[in-house]
Simulated scan of single mutants.
Amino acid sequence: MSAITITSFSADDLVRHLPELGALLHACVHDGASVGFVMPYGVADSEAFWRGKVLPSLRAGGLMLFVAREGDAIAGTVQLDYDTMPNQRHRAEVRKLLVHPAFRRRGIARALMTELERHARHLRRSLLTLDTRTGDHAEPLYATLGYQTAGVIPGYAQAPHDEGRLDATTVMYKAL
């Protein structure tokens, strides 16, 4: 097992590593992650997300993408969305914390969040927000990192593997 390294990916990096990023998202969704997608969900859908949603924001300069790697393998990612309105320049949003199922329980999510928060401070962001499926494994992780629960919204999103079930989301924040 190699050491985990975390880097910030540029738009060019994303393009170069699109197949690995697509495979990461695909694996997480198939493992039950509630990150906006439902079954059936293919690798092409994953790559389309990175190309269509993440790449334009990276190019425009309103988003940072942090990538955790073990050797050459991409183990996880998280996004810092700081493309905010003029009255919200003090805040940013945490998006899509993903850790490949094969790399979980190694502190990767915590390391990604620590790096994201470091960069948010550098950007003079004093408030971070996020949402997570209520009761998910990420919710207690965020709490241990100092995120507070603002509230719970019932019936927020369709469950990835059960089209008849709507899951609640917990909205959280952290003052930096």
Score class of each variant (00 low, 15 high):
H90D: 00
V43S: 13
G42D: 10
L128W: 01
R91A: 05
A27E: 03
Q79W: 12
F37S: 09
W50M: 02
Q88V: 07
A27N: 09
R104A: 02
D31K: 14
S46K: 12
G36D: 05
R110Q: 11
E47H: 03
S126P: 06
G32S: 08
R104I: 11
S46L: 05
E115W: 11
Q88E: 09
L141I: 03
V94F: 08
R125W: 00
D83I: 08
S57H: 08
H119M: 04
L58K: 06
T129K: 01
D136E: 00
G135F: 00
A73V: 14
A48K: 07
A60Q: 10
A102V: 04
R133N: 04
P101R: 03
T132Q: 01
P40V: 10
Y142I: 03
F37V: 06
A111R: 13
V38L: 11
I108Y: 04
A102F: 07
K53H: 11
V94C: 07
A138H: 15
F37Y: 09
E117D: 06
A143Y: 06
P101F: 05
Y147V: 07
R133C: 04
R118N: 07
E47F: 12
D83A: 15
E93N: 12
A60T: 08
R95N: 14
G42M: 10
H100N: 02
E70L: 09
L63G: 09
L112S: 00
R59A: 15
S46H: 06
T129G: 06
L58R: 03
G42P: 04
D131W: 00
L128T: 00
W50C: 00
E93S: 06
R133Q: 09
Q88I: 07
P86T: 06
L145Q: 01
A111N: 15
G42I: 09
L123G: 00
V43L: 15
D136G: 02
I74C: 12
P140V: 10
F103C: 04
A60I: 08
F103G: 02
S57Y: 03
L58V: 04
H26Y: 10
A44F: 12
M64W: 09
R110F: 10
V54W: 12
L112W: 01
Q79H: 10
T84W: 07
L127V: 03
P101A: 08
D81W: 05
A73I: 07
L98M: 01
R133I: 03
A102C: 11
V78F: 11
M64R: 15
Y147M: 01
P86L: 05
A60D: 09
T84S: 13
R121Q: 06
E115D: 06
V54R: 13
R69S: 15
V99Q: 04
R104F: 01
L58Q: 10
R91F: 02
E115N: 03
R118M: 02
W50H: 00
T114S: 15
L80D: 00
P56I: 14
V43A: 07
G135K: 05
G52F: 02
Y82V: 00
